[in-house]
């Protein structure tokens, strides 16, 4: 019925956005957890620089981030060119590029949420794990990771929501090609540009609000049940 309620063109935008946000979230989780752990638990030279780079997309105008992505990850760019030659991986003007842009923009939010939850884990518990024979990786896997699951969940949902709403960097990096890179926000923008498009725009706005609310509720429920399971509630 939601399929009937939306035109195929609108539905395409919604489905693309869900796909882009899903993969953006999934692929940023491992580096997100790693960077959050580095920032929360380790001292190393250049820590502030890493911190700055991670947070840059949060403070830069999204258009600037998108343009920087185009410069580096485009087929002519230094990184994008190599990826294309070696792996045949192309980001520019593809849905993968939309996912990359969304991931970069959502990364700081995810890292912040996970970092906060790591900082809440008592390092003394990790030391106790070490005295019981667990090496650093094992301590992380058996003590830290289970205890920060709620934080990871919150980080993932935040990142997903941010990815769903990403507009500036996406449109700059991969443009606004229906069915390829036209995500939900780009579609709303496009509909508003043509006469008689308000109906479509409004329907997409409703879908977007629905997804956001759903994600928020889901994260709340999931975080609560995980907290209970790990004995934190």
């Amino acid at each position: 019925m939601i399929l009937d309620w939306l035109t195929p063109e609108e539905w395409q935008a919604v489905a693309l956005s869900l796909r882009v946000s899903f993969w953006a979230t999934v692929f940023s989780l491992p580096p997100g957890i790693a960077v959050a752990y580095l920032l929360a638990r380790c001292e190393f030279p250049g820590k502030q620089i890493l911190n700055g780079i991670v947070h840059l997309p949060l403070i830069l105008p999204p258009v600037v981030t998108g343009y920087l992505l185009l410069l580096t990850m485009g087929t002519q760019g230094p990184v994008g060119g190599v990826l294309k030659d070696l792996f045949g991986l192309v980001f520019a003007f593809r849905w993968t590029g939309a996912a990359l842009a969304a991931a970069v923009m959502a990364f700081p939010l995810m890292v912040r949420a996970i970092r906060l939850s790591i900082e809440l884990v008592d390092p003394k518990l990790e030391l106790a794990g070490a005295t019981l024979g667990a090496g650093r990786l094992w301590v992380f896997a058996t003590v830290t990771l289970p205890l920060i699951l709620p934080g990871i969940l919150v980080g993932a949902i935040l990142a997903f929501a941010k990815a769903m709403g990403e507009f500036g960097a996406t449109i700059t990096f991969v443009s606004n090609i229906p069915g390829q890179t036209q995500t939900l926000p780009s579609a709303i923008y496009a509909f508003l540009q043509v006469p008689g498009g308000e109906g479509s725009a409004l329907r997409l706005v409703a879908v977007s609000v629905g997804i956001a609310m759903g994600a928020l509720l889901l994260s709340e429920i999931a975080a609560r049940s995980v907290s209970k399971r790990i004995g934190r509630a």
């Binding site: 106790a128 070490a130 005295t131 024979g133 090496g135 004995g231």
Partner: peptide, 30 residues
Amino acid sequence: LPPHKRRIGYVFQDGRLFPHMTVRQNLLYG
């Protein structure tokens, strides 16, 4: 030797049990 290779049992003043594990899992951890 790093702490996890020393085979030292350490009982801390504040217990430091793993909150996400049962007593049994805590006991068998080491």
